[in-house]
Design a protein around this nucleic acid. Structure first.
Lengths: 249, 249
DNA sequence: GAGTGCATCTCGCTC
DNA sequence: GAGCGAGGTGCACTC
């Protein structure tokens, strides 16, 4: 049996199913009217409302409202979930040790309780990160400009790590700050801080923001100091082009 | 009827229920074996596996695996969700306009499909943020030190906003950088940047990190420049102490 | 276990 | 709608 579901269960049935789901390390979900209190890194209270509760076998605990991507309350993986009955009411509890965090959910009414034993070993294959950009530039320096020769990745300075360090065709030092999406003023400020570390070579170092685009404010800030912007999209090619077609079925 | 659920539905039943749920603006959930492709800000592929799919009435779309807090694939609120049948297979699609993003989910097998019409108007009450800290210090400046008088909140400089500006009992300028949790080197770097704007008063300005704690690295960086750290917990008192007790039921 | 930095960050706010 | 910064950020990675 891959899953169990029960409509409008009694509190004791609900308790039993959740308890069973926890023991079997299933993904448990409830549609329920509930309220929640959280205490830990912050403190919060959530009044009564209709929500969806999810408990995963890794200890993740999520309460989702009917809007937003983020759960309204949650506990991270490795939290310990418990269920108990108190005065005929089902209470869910999730505890984390470090940092100490505690979430308690009182369930007024359950519409649907279910658990699901589906396991999923697949990992997401994703591309288009800053890291992918760095690798692409390292392999194809000419994407920055003809004659560019990168010398260091993650070059350490007192102000942090420079994404890519290199030299142009005239041997002039180049500092590249990569962003996988539109660069803002922060990226420029970061670049300027790195340049501070090379002040002795004043005027001899080129600072370049490499990103798909840049905000107007950031461009202004950049040109103020004679720095440069190079438009470059992060690579969006998955390493293994897994066939995802209808043939599969 | 607050919800519908169907175990092991046929593809066409599944399609019908999802379609109905979308029209009724319900929260739709599926336990299903599926695969997904995403393209937009990045690109990703997720092979076949057992997962939980959630579509909210605000357009949020989530695919959850049996682990982690974050969905493995998702679309943000205001995305447009569609369902269709193709060669007897149910396909879910979610599209966002700006930025252009597209998520497509092919559903191989559905164990449970359901939708839920529960509405939830409750907002989360939460405290313990940096903002709460700022308000607390503004009201009780003596928490920083005897004689401290704050003069500005969110004071604008060329490097950003200073959380709190004020003077000590000797009339010396004080720049406070607040963090609601352990301060790291970034907080110190930020503080140092603000201080740059006051360099003409060199030695006459005190820079202080205010946080519950600080990393060792950050403390070192701080003391290097004769700056200070003040340990202060963010306030954790909810504005209205809403009664959340079992009496409610 | 703590510290650091990226993210399809999300989300709320301001302009 | 774009830009900016905080977050119970989460998460992977390093040390």
């Amino acid at each position: 049996m891959k899953f169990i579901s029960r409509e409008n269960p009694s509190p004791s049935d609900c308790f039993r199913i959740i308890d069973e789901g926890l023991r079997k390390r299933a993904v448990i979900t409830l549609f329920a009217c509930c309220q929640a209190t959280y205490e830990g890194r912050a403190r919060s209270k959530l009044g009564l409302g209709e929500r969806m509760i999810i408990i995963k076998p890794d200890g993740s605990f999520l309460i989702h409202q009917d809007r937003k991507l983020d759960p309204v309350n949650w506990q991270p993986p490795k939290s310990r979930s418990k269920v108990r009955m108190e005065n005929g009411i089902v209470i869910l509890e999730s505890v984390r040790r470090t940092p100490p965090e505690h979430l308690e959910v009182e369930i007024k009414n359950v519409h649907l309780v279910s658990y699901y034993l589906g396991r999923d070993s697949q990992e997401l294959e994703v591309c288009g990160h800053e890291k992918d950009m760095g690798e692409m530039i390292w392999k194809h320096p000419e994407l920055i400009e003809k004659g560019f020769r990168p010398t260091d990745k993650e070059y350490s300075t007192s102000k942090g790590f420079i994404d890519i360090l290199g030299k142009d065709e005239n041997g002039q030092l180049m500092i590249l700050e990569l962003k996988s999406r539109k660069a803002g003023t922060n990226a420029v400020k970061q670049l300027k801080r790195y340049l501070k570390d090379f002040e002795d070579n004043k005027g001899q170092v080129r600072g370049i923001i490499v990103a798909p685009s840049i905000t107007e404010d950031a461009l202004e800030l950049l040109e103020e100091d004679g720095l440069e912007f190079k438009s470059l999209e992060p690579p969006k090619e998955l390493k293994e082009e897994k066939k995802v077609t209808l043939d599969f079925f």
